[in-house]
């Protein structure tokens, strides 16, 4: 079971308080009538599904109820950071370099 830090509550909490909501930073097309079926399919269904670092949405359903994002490693489950919804996707490579330095 994961231990996840909610960036709103600022508390570390067990995974069962949260619901995962899939890949983060997938924006709905601004002008839906201007995109073709291929772009809709990408928005709805196509995912990176990486073996490695993954930016993903979580919702603190049994806490504050709010959505936030996390960067988690899909092989060893390490969580690099959690951050509030609306904040830009962090530069993961740079963060890892800085941690090592």
């Amino acid at each position: 079971m994961l231990n996840i830090r909610c960036p709103y509550c600022e508390e570390d909490r067990p995974e069962i308080e949260f619901r995962n909501a899939g890949e983060a930073h997938i924006a709905r097309p601004d002008e839906p009538d201007r995109v073709d079926d291929r772009q809709w399919a990408d928005f709805l269904y196509t995912r990176d599904n990486p073996k490695g670092w993954h930016a993903e949405r979580w919702r603190h359903v049994h806490g504050c109820g709010r959505f936030f994002n996390a960067v988690r490693h899909s092989v060893d489950d390490r969580i690099l950071l959690t951050y509030k919804a609306g904040e830009p996707k962090p530069d993961i490579e740079r963060m890892l370099r800085e941690r090592e330095a």
Binding site: M1, E15, I16, R19, S74, V75, D77
Partner: peptide
């Protein structure tokens, strides 16, 4: 498990 994973180890709950 509820989240994407390549870990081959599921959660006990």
């Amino acid at each position: 498990d509820q989240y994407l994973s390549y870990a081959q180890t599921g959660a006990l709950h």
